[in-house]
Design a protein around this nucleic acid. Structure first.
Lengths: 125, 125
DNA sequence: GCTTGACTTGGAGTGAACTCGAAGTTCTAT
DNA sequence: ATAGAACTTCGAGTTCACTCCAAGTCAAGC
């Protein structure tokens, strides 16, 4: 398939896909009379990238992973190590988000009381 | 207190504090012989900003909130509305992080099997 | 009163991740 | 055969959130 179709199926823009190839995140695929020709594997890889992106993994780290992947099965151990570190960070992030969430909700609850006081003050002035 | 002390207490760098003032996130405080002079309120406000930052609220939105705050008690309703929308987004984000987390953990589990296969292949070659 | 460190302003530079534009080539449908 | 959409490369521009620099002013300790 050509870049337009891959863009549509993967959810990344064609611009972004070319950019990913340039920075080494997407393997350089073969050309058919000058135009990029992708197979289904590209889509699988992009789905994985997309997943890592939702967890805020920086592109640089994904590129490191991509390089290992390109070197084949011998790098599976290294890849696993790279990947294992990530969920730990994500877990920490989730925890801090949840803590902030509860603080914010408390703050929002406080607004009801504050607004009431403010209305009362307006009444008595 | 001067900017250095506020920086140290708030955890933001003095550079960043000046930047926040410039973009309207931090109210322009009075100067004592040319140097910024802060009170404890500044610290409270920065702690709140810090909280919003951990939940990835963009600076632009915090600035909108800061502007309302600067206009006083009359804007409490508006401020509350602005704030209420945020935890909803954060909740969605937490959910998608958690989903991705479980997908990644599955993928990492998969590596054990893949590595075993790869070792076996090496043996028989 | 002098040194040293903290402060002031304005503006430029950084890094991440895109995003777009120009000018030319190729593909698809009629 | 030709119109028009989709593609090519390369480089420049954008946004966000800082971060740093230069050149000068101010404060605190000896």
């Amino acid at each position: 398939m050509r870049i337009g179709e891959l863009a549509q199926k993967s959810g990344f823009s064609a611009h972004t896909l070319r950019y990913y190839e340039k920075i080494g995140l997407l393997p350089r695929t073969g050309r058919k009379s000058g135009q990029r020709d992708y197979d289904a594997d590209a889509l699988v890889w992009l789905a994985f990238i997309s997943r890592l992106k939702t967890t805020d993994m920086p592109l640089a780290e994904m590129i490191a992973y991509a390089r290992l992947r390109a070197r084949g099965a011998a790098t599976i151990g290294e890849r696993r190590e790279l990947l294992v570190a990530h969920p730990k960070r994500v877990k920490t992030q989730v925890a801090s988000l949840q803590e902030s969430l509860s603080v914010l909700n408390k703050k929002i609850g406080g607004y009801a009381a504050e607004q009431k006081r403010s209305i009362k003050n307006a009444d008595t002035k």
